[in-house]
Design a binder for these strands. Structure first.
Lengths: 245, 245
DNA sequence: ACACACTGTGTGTGCCGTACGCAGACCATA
DNA sequence: TATGGTCTGCGTACGGCACACACAGTGTGT
């Protein structure tokens, strides 16, 4: 197991390049390519990120990109690495719950800034520096809980799953945007039309038992913390169970 | 708000076609197309589902498919609808926890049968009959908990998020497959190589504090129930909080 | 000085989703 | 029963995609 086995992009991100080599100097750095791709994705969505568009944004030909990145999947790795950036530092004198909440909020904010991260197809568990940094901070939140290594990892994964899932529910729907509330209204109307009380009694009752506008498809800030707190309550129960016995 | 406003595929799935019309009879039904597409996806992954391949599997030309489906996104709707099938019926005399667990397990099993469902890009909340059926059953699990309509929905969404997320972690990794454990082993080795104890002390400690093979990237059955139970513990705390006041 | 690895480029391939126009099949109506 | 209009399936075509490959020039280690 040596560094050479790693995908080229990971070698670069970890600064593991070998000694200097003959030939022309590269014009760009990986970070330039990542920044250009992220700009495209932020503006027009992940679908707007193609090798040719990224290259064009840099004044390059399409195929030049492959001198820096072996495949589009590797470009995604670079994008994710730069989009997340540094996690928030751990404040001393805080409870595990405060720490993991801050971590989750920072995670959510990163997703808000770059909603496309949820659409990037994940093929492997993360190995890039910043991703590990986030993992490190997530694990650190449970340091003084008495949870075992395996339990800490599971708890962190649980929160990670939740934040990703909650983000997916609200992706593309910023509640301020007029087309959002329009979509929400339309959905509720259609649901009301289709949810025949005979076949779907619970949905129908659920719909009727509250003001129409309140059946939120959106997942707003309140919903986020509601679900997060519920998840953390579960973890709290786990901690209690592990420490009492 | 009338049925005509619905996307054509939804009209078909709900059996809302208008009166008979002149012209030739369609050769196929939506379900034939869905079955062919699902077969492709089950065998070679969602990437193998293209309009031309689905059409070819049916002995059709590519463009004929567009007589049944307005876009590839609509094909996805048909695929999801058929892939999930009927949810498990609710057994009488069970606790909410048993009911939602059965629901989650059935959901997970559907994902196991058709792992590609997690890769289908979701653009809208679901409105097709079976999706509503699953929603109905999920909500029904919380019927006797005293939770409000909004809380029941939130709780169901929380479980839904968890099962999806847990599935995503184990997608493509069936623990029996040799290439799976190989990938897991490789990942742990690389992680051990890259996780410098100075920069990532918690990860390093976590890695060392257990047998190497035990740092599971995989999310196996035990992990699934561990996370599910933790989530349900959180919901249980919610129920307790709402009923004591 | 020189060999050669490396750079950016141009061309080309095989996919993809889908727009559009056509010929023939079929049914409601006259 | 005749017929008009509409629907079906097909063929062609377009722009875009990821990527293979060969090429010419560049600049460093020997």
């Amino acid at each position: 197991m040596t560094a050479e086995d790693l995908p080229r992009v990971l070698q670069q991100l970890w600064g593991l390049e070998g000694p200097a080599r003959p030939g022309p100097k590269p014009t760009f750095q990986l970070s330039d390519i990542g920044a250009a791709a992220i700009k495209l994705a932020d503006t027009d969505g992940l679908g707007a990120v193609s090798m040719s568009k990224v290259a064009a944004a840099l004044g390059f030909t399409t195929m030049s990109l492959y001198r820096y990145v072996d495949s589009k999947d590797e470009l995604y790795v670079v994008m994710l690495e730069q989009a997340f950036g540094q996690p928030v530092p751990v404040e001393p004198g805080t409870t595990w719950r405060e720490r993991i909440t801050a971590w989750a909020v920072a995670f959510r904010d990163a997703i808000r800034r770059h909603p496309w991260v949820l659409q990037v197809p994940i093929t492997e568990p993360p190995l890039s520096p910043m991703q590990l940094e986030w993992m490190e901070h997530g694990l650190r939140a449970f340091e003084d809980t008495g949870l075992s290594a395996a339990d800490s990892l599971s708890a962190m994964i649980l929160v990670n799953i939740y934040v990703r899932g909650a983000g997916a529910l609200s992706v593309g729907m910023t509640p301020d945007a007029p087309e959002y509330s329009e979509a929400n209204r339309l959905y509720v109307q259609r649901l009301a039309m289709l949810a025949d009380p005979d076949r779907y009694p619970t949905i129908a009752t659920n719909l009727q038992s509250r003001p129409a506008a309140d059946f939120d498809v959106d997942y707003d800030a309140d919903d986020f913390f509601f679900g997060l707190d519920t998840t953390l309550d579960g973890i709290e129960a786990l901690i209690a169970r592990r420490t009492t016995r």
